[in-house]
Design a binder for these strands. Sequence first.
RNA 1: GGAGGGGUGACCGAGUGGUCGAAGGUGCUCGCCUGGAAAGCGAGUGUGCCGUUCUACGGUACCGAGGGUUCGAAUCCCUCCCCCUCCGCCA
Length: 425
Amino acid sequence: MLDIDAIRSDPQRVREALRAKGAGDPSLVDTLLEVDEERRATITELQETQARQNDLSSEIGALKREGKDEEAQARIEETSRLKEKIQELEDRVDDVKARQRDLLLKIPNVPHPSVPVGASEEDNEVEDTIGEKPAFDFEPAPHWELADTHDLVDFERGAKVTGSGFPFYTGRGARLQRALLNFFLDRARDRGYKEMQPPKFINPESAEGTGQLPDKDDLMYRIPRDDFFPIPTGEVPMTNFHRDEILDVDDLPLKYCAYSPCWRREAGSYGADVRGLNRLHEFDKVELVQIVHPDDSYRALDALLDDAESALDALGLPYRRLLMCTGDMGFTQAKKYDLEVWSAGQEKWLEVSSVSTFEAFQARRMQIRYRPEPEARTRLVHTLNGSGLAFPRVLAALLENNQTADGRIRLPDPLREYAGFDWIE
RNA sequence: GGAGGGGUGACCGAGUGGUCGAAGGUGCUCGCCUGGAAAGCGAGUGUGCCGUUCUACGGUACCGAGGGUUCGAAUCCCUCCCCCUCCGCCA
């Protein structure tokens, strides 16, 4: 959510953001400004009426104490009339506030000036490609074949027990998942992130806080009986951890990491890229979250990016870094990078991490603030997050890139101790 | 799930219908005191919104959330949420 005062003082900037993100009709801004005008006028009228009523009420109290009941009675009659007016004005204020909020929730975050303008993923910038794609003197197999050969993942039984996109990891496949979990969490902790175990269900307030609601409603599963959502990413509980809090400026930046499963409905995404581990309804991830002073926001973004990339470096996986363009970056982000790992068996890039800053967009919805110095006015923090990393596609790339001509798979050195084995054979 | 107790400012805690945004204390900020510090003394110290103005002031709302009674609600009534204790159930 953007700051209404900022929109009022520079509406053109917001119209341009709407256009650049392809996120709606720029005239939305003008509608919003009209509603804002109405809201402020109505509030002023309400408050003036309330002030009059408060004056009368304290006069009534004073008169009654002095025993001047007749004079008090005249004022009581006047306040009775004011009461109706106040009720009506309160209703109007509630209504206009709700309308303004609905409009504000439809307005996306404004992209940072460094973000390339573009309409779709075609316009994302490949900033860098790191590492060498492995060369093979044979035809490398896709990971679903390797997983099948070595009994690492059981898609069919997962589909039977739950549904498509809910695989079992079996034997060394399961151990490898556990190895990734510990490997990623230990790395994050070494880089200064506090380890957390968040709840895996969230309530609607939390979902709105980080921006999953109302605009990405169909992304999540839902438990209607108890009004919970299974988390689509650890970002949601982790960032909402400090919702409605005023933080101590000396505690910033707050850096948290957590492992969690993630559930996504992926409605309407059935296509060519759903085979094997490429796109699942349930997957595991280590998530990194930072809550920072606004001045440190973009330094933190670079650092967070480095945290995610270093994990790929350590695993020896070739990857590329994409700076997302305005049209492909999402509603809530101000700037976003994707990291894509090379998958040799499929000969394509797979997204394993998304690293973003939201500036104050999420913080405003969540009311996460800090006090710059004692007795100063509170200000909103900036929030950031990044995957570090998502397991299934990392696993896919590990299997495909490290396969040998005789059908074995070599584990990268840092993972061997965690997994407890060096080769899958 | 059953029974009981409770949710007040950064924290503790008082407040059962009007002068209460809320006593007192702790913490914090500034000043005095001191060679320096502690103690002590004095002053200040919630959040949001609206308005004026240009940064202080005025107004308004907020005592778990929502609704009601009343001229007037932290205080009375109703619904819900959360926490604690005991019982039950349970990994």
